[in-house]
Amino acid sequence: MATIITKEQQEKEKMVTLVSSDSEKFVVEQKVAEKSHVIKMVMNCCGIESPIPVRRVKGDILKSILEYCEKHSKGEAQEVMEKWDKEYMDKAEKDLVFFHDLMLASHFLHIQELVDLIAVTFAGMLKMKSPEEIRQKFNINNDLTKEQEEHIMTTFGWAFQPI
């Protein structure tokens, strides 16, 4: 006897449940979860029937990552995506701890596009800043003397002073 699968069932079958380290559950479309190379491999080998634990990632981070994956699975125009990415990053970089966790999670989950986006945004935070401003922002201990710093500035910086 042929099994009749309704459209609704078909849609339902494409959903997958992801569980964060703090047991928060997220039900997303398979194509959204596939943006993560790691989750895609898990789905390929274990199927999507049972929930997939994402043990290293907390709920708030996973939520944000899935928001990114969902937007990037829609195939929208490049300008729309660039604008969205910028707003997404503007929001994320306000909280440095959150931003770091987002980087770690996207790296862990192998979402290369997001890793690149975060890395570029991160690099952007370092532009136009003095060494002291960079140290303060990222809580880095200064172990160079004033003279060493001046020496580096003159030895390496001469080519890049604005006109």
Binding site: H107, A123, L126, I134, N141, I152, G157
Partner: peptide, 24 residues
């Protein structure tokens, strides 16, 4: 991961990065 981020800073700012710490 830090290296992935730092490497994306353009060349014109590299002398500033060199001044942050001995390790940088």
């Amino acid at each position: 991961i830090a290296l992935l981020c730092l490497a994306r800073v353009p060349l014109r700012y590299h002398h500033v990065l060199r001044c942050v710490s001995r390790r940088w």
